[in-house]
Amino acid sequence: MGKAEQTMECCLLGGKLMLRYGAETYRVEDTMTRMAQSAGMHHVSSFVTITGIFLAFRTTEGQDLMQMIRVRERYQDLSKVTSVNQVSREFTHGELTIENTIQKLIEIEKAPMNYPLWLIYLASGIGGAAFSYLIGGSLFDVLPAFIGGLITTVSLVLYQKYLKVRFFSEFLASLTGGMIAILLVQSGFGISIDQVIIGTLIPLVPGVPLTNSVRDLMSGDLVAGVARGAEAGVSSLSIAAGVAVSLSILYI
């Protein structure tokens, strides 16, 4: 494999990882452009939307290369974004060869999540409990919010694992969480139903697409920004629909 093909593979792998784990569009474009330029390529152009990456450059021999890849799945794992950022920074500063960079990127791709799944479940319980206190201010409702937040995230992970449908699993997780919260309050484990439901559902907030959408629109990546905004909107609407259904079944 020649140097040009290796550079192309390296840049596309880095870009794919960043985009998949929740980096902003401008950062993906910028990283790929810098990596290709520091490998000695000219006329580097990259175009990134949230579902695909295009990269084109001209080698030192005057040969033009262009490739695109499709990125289907999107996760929220900012520690992988940070690691890819670090690797690309080292490559651009000339501290890594292309072979080492590809090796390191493949290691990042194959690495498991930064935190074990049980810690994420626990964190969503704790986050929900603390947030429900911040919203309502009654310490008695913290425990049901903890149970609710834990069950919401566990059920979200299970639905996504076995059903593999993007927004429907969020709807089902929010429905499950809402019903658990209402049942807990009705059986006497909490006082204020508002506080418990908010604490239960807050771990589902689509924080990554929401923040990145603002960032993309501001840096002029209009296609990616609008698409991410739509993703965040549909996510929020499915969560809201789940709450509405659980309220209609059990509460009203």
Binding site: Q76, D77, L78, S79, K80, T82, M113, N114, Y115, L119, I120, A123, S124, I126, G127, A130, F131, Y133, L134, T153, P203, G207, V208
Partner: peptide, 23 residues
């Protein structure tokens, strides 16, 4: 108490979003 709980909540959300432990 609110500020302490807010700290705990934000750190918990950092773990939900898989942010590295040192950050």
């Amino acid at each position: 108490l609110e500020l302490l709980l807010c700290f705990i909540a934000t750190v918990a959300f950092g773990i939900i979003f898989n942010i590295p432990l040192r950050l």
